[in-house]
Write a protein that binds this DNA or RNA. Sequence first.
DNA 1: TCCATCTTTTGTAGCGCTACAATATTCTGC
DNA 2: GCAGAATATTGTAGCGCTACAAAAGATGGA
Lengths: 336, 336
Amino acid sequence: MTKSRNDEAITMQSVAIAAGVSPMTVSNTFRYPERVQEETRRRVLTIAAELGYVPNHAAGNLASGQSRVIGAVIPSIKNSSFYNYVRGMQDRVASQGYQLILKLADTVSQEAAAIRTFVGLRVAGVALVGDEHEVDALTLLRKTGVPVVESWVYNNPFDMAVGYSTADATHAITSLLIEAGRQRIGFVGYDGDVSRRYTERVPVFRRCVESAGLDSHRIVLVDQADGFSAGAKALEGLCAIDPDIDAIVCPTDIVAAGVLFECGRRGWKVPDRLAVAGWGDYEIASEITPGITTIQPHSYEMGQRAMTLIVERASGIDRRGVSHDTGFQVVRRESV
Amino acid sequence: MTKSRNDEAITMQSVAIAAGVSPMTVSNTFRYPERVQEETRRRVLTIAAELGYVPNHAAGNLASGQSRVIGAVIPSIKNSSFYNYVRGMQDRVASQGYQLILKLADTVSQEAAAIRTFVGLRVAGVALVGDEHEVDALTLLRKTGVPVVESWVYNNPFDMAVGYSTADATHAITSLLIEAGRQRIGFVGYDGDVSRRYTERVPVFRRCVESAGLDSHRIVLVDQADGFSAGAKALEGLCAIDPDIDAIVCPTDIVAAGVLFECGRRGWKVPDRLAVAGWGDYEIASEITPGITTIQPHSYEMGQRAMTLIVERASGIDRRGVSHDTGFQVVRRESV
DNA sequence: TCCATCTTTTGTAGCGCTACAATATTCTGC
DNA sequence: GCAGAATATTGTAGCGCTACAAAAGATGGA
C-alpha cells in the first residue's frame, strides 16, 4: 500500500506553495542550485526539509529522460571476492552525485532478469561482471543504448570494459611455482557451467608448465559451490593422479584455504611438502597460516574505473569500445 | 546520455500501434493478463518481444503510485554473514513478482542516504538491518508511510521486524561452554561504533558466567574491521588478563577462525587447551579444522519472512507492529 | 529617463504509463 | 432473434516532474 492517490503526499507543488514560489523554482533549487538566488534557494530548502520532501525520482526520470542511478549486477556475495569492487564503485559514484544499486545474479538468466529490471528502471548505466551474457539481454541493452561496462574482462567489450588478463595472471602464478623449483605442479579448475574467466586458465597453465619441460596432466576439476571443501576434494583428486604432487594452483583463495585445511589434517607441511597458490587475495589469504601466495586483481580500482566510464558516457563523452586494463599483482606469501 | 527525448524509443504506444490495439490493451497485457483475450495477449507479447519493449517502470510507478521494487540496505558484503539473508529475500521476492534491489551501507548515515534513494525511487518497501537508524531517515520513512521491516532484531519494531534474540543466543552459547566444564571463559566483543546487536551481548555473558559461580572479567574488545586478525589480538588480550584461559566466546566465526589460526601458531590444541565458540555459522565454521561451534541464525528464513511482510503490506494487509522471531540454533562442532 | 543586457522566476506542454469509466463485442437463455 | 449479462477493448485525464521559452526584475551606461 504505497500510498493512495489522493493522500496528502508531499510533492514539489506543495513545497512550492509553502515557499511562495513556482514549482519550477523548487525544481531548479534541487537540480541547478546556481540558477536560483541564494535567499530563495535557502527558503525552499528549509521548507522542503521541514515538509520531509523527497523528489520523486520516477517523475523526474520520466520528465527528463535522465537518471542518476546506476545499476550493477554482482554474481555472488558468498565470499568477499567482490567486496572491494563494490566499494570502488560505490565510492566513485557517490563523489559524482550518482547512486549505485545492486542486484545479485548467480546465473546468466538471473543476470538477464536483473538487466531487465535495471532497464525498466531506466538507470543511467549498467555494470556487469564478465563477458558472458544472455543474447536477449544484450539485444535489449543494445536497443535501449544504455551505457554498459563489463568488468573483470577486457577483451572485445560489448560497450566498455575494465579488467585484467586472466591469461597473464595464470602465466605469472604458474611461472612463480616453476621458478620456485616445483616439478610436479597440479592445477585445480572449476567444473560445470562456470565462467570463461576460469576455464580459459587451463590451456594457459598447460602451455606454461610444458614450455618448462614439465608434465601438465595433473589437472582436476571441482564444484564451485563447494567452497572450502573443494580444497579437500581437489587434493584427493590430484593425489590420485600423482601422490607425489608438490604444488597446486587453485582457482580462488577459498579453494587454496581448503587445501591448507586438508594439509593440516594430513599433517603435510606447507610449502615444504606442497606449495599452494590461490587467486583473488581474499582476506583469508593474508590471515591464514601460512599466508597464501595469490593473484591480487585491482578490484577497487576496477570498480572505480567502471563507474567513471559510465558517468563519462552519461555526461556525453563517447567512450564506446573503450577498455581499461587495471592489471594485477602477484602477492607472495609463505604458501609458496 | 540515456536517450534524447525524440529518439525512436520503444514505448507502449509504439507496441500498441504495431499490434493494432490501444495502449491500454498493451498495459493490461503486462499488468492484468487475465483481462486480455488469449489471442490478443499473445500478439501483443510477440510484438513487444520483437521490438524489445521494456515497460518504463518510472512512468508506471508515477501513474499508478505503485511499485514492484523492494529496496534492502545491507551493512556489508565483506564476509558471507548476509549471504543467506539476501538469498532468502531474493527467492521470496521473485516468487511474488517483485524485484529486490540492494544498497550497501556501513554506517547509519550511509544507511540514511540509501533510504533516501529508495524513497526517491518510491519503492514498495524497505528492508533494514538492525534497529539503529538516523532520526531523519526514520522521520522520512514515517512521513512517506513506506512499509519498513527491520531484520536481525525483533523488539520494538519501528514498523515491522524479523529476527532472533541476541540475548538468548548469547546465553545459549555461554551455557554450552559452562556445561562443557570450562571454568575460565573469556569473551570477545567489538570496539568502537558498533551495533547494539554486539554490545548487548556483554552483560548477558557476564550474568551467565556469574550465575554459574565463575569470574566474568575476561573480556576484551577488538576492532570489527580487523577480520581474522582480530582473533589473534583477542587471544593476546585475553591471555594478558588470564594466561590460563580455557574458553572463548567470539562475536563472529571470522574472529573464531582467527583465534583458531593463532592457536595453530602457538601450537595450542583446540578444544583441549582452549574451547572456541563463534557466531553466525559462516561457511568457514564447518570447513575449518576443527569445526567451529557456533550460533546459526536462520538468516535465509529471516530474509524470506522480511519480504513476506512487505509484500503483504503492499497488498493491503495491515501488518504494522508485527514482529517475527525466527529463532536460532546452536551448532555444535569440534571447537568446543 | 530610456534602452540594452543580464539575472531570476514562471507558464506551458508533455514524458510514458495506468485508473477509471465508458463503449464495443460476445455469449446466454428463451 | 433478442434482451440482458458477461467479457473485451478503448478514451480520457492526470500522476509529479523538467525542458524550454517567455516574462519579469535588476543593473548600468548614455
